[in-house]
Design a protein around this nucleic acid. Structure first.
Length: 176
DNA sequence: ACAGCGATTGACT
DNA sequence: GTCAATCGCTGTA
């Protein structure tokens, strides 16, 4: 039983979506084949309320998906070598995104830990940014495959100096 | 125009 | 534990 996630899932505040994405499956279809992985670690990012967010100041050619409709991919290039994958979330007019930090690759549950490694696994590049995952024809999307999740915990986000009081990082264990 | 650094990783001491 | 890789975004001038 595979149910593709729809707009009502992503049109909520980033913290709720980040928590609920644990255990959901990220899918990318390419000419090479299909890549599927269960999400095990996420981080929520907001807008003007979140000093650690790329969207704290203003919209730019890079971060525009965070301002646009929920369900858009937001892929950014960092440290001159890594691509990090986010999905834009929030009700229309709300700014935010969820970063995918770790997954387990199906069907063997091989762990891939770290946003740069997730980007490498899915071969994400800048051309994958701004893609609408909710479109029926989209080659990148999330789906619910019915995985049960245990021990979802929140903690401070990794790799940032600001807003360390916000516990917007989520980790969980996949039951199988 | 330019210096500094980032939602990171891998290699090396 | 420390540090290089490598480039676009950002703040300052």
């Amino acid at each position: 039983m595979k149910k593709k996630l729809t707009a009502d899932f992503f049109e909520r505040n980033p913290v709720d979506v980040a928590a609920d994405l644990i255990g959901k499956v990220l899918v990318k279809k390419t000419s090479e084949g299909i890549i599927e992985a269960v999400v095990t670690e996420t981080e929520a990012y907001g807008g003007q309320d979140d000093p650690a967010s790329h969207a704290f100041r203003k919209q730019t050619p890079r971060n525009w998906p965070m301002y646009a409709e929920a369900g858009l991919t937001y892929v950014y290039f960092v440290y001159g070598m890594h691509y990090c994958f986010n999905v834009s979330v929030g009700k229309p007019g709300q700014v935010g995104a969820v970063l995918i930090r770790a997954v387990q690759v199906l069907p063997d549950y091989v762990p891939v830990i770290g946003p740069g490694r997730v980007g490498k696994l899915f071969h994400f590049t800048s051309s994958d940014s701004g893609v609408q995952t909710l479109k029926p024809s989209s080659s990148i999307f999330f789906e619910d495959q019915g995985f049960a999740v245990q021990n979802v915990q929140s903690s401070a986000r990794i790799g940032i100096q600001k807003a360390l009081d916000k516990q917007w990082r989520f980790t969980g264990t996949i039951l199988r």
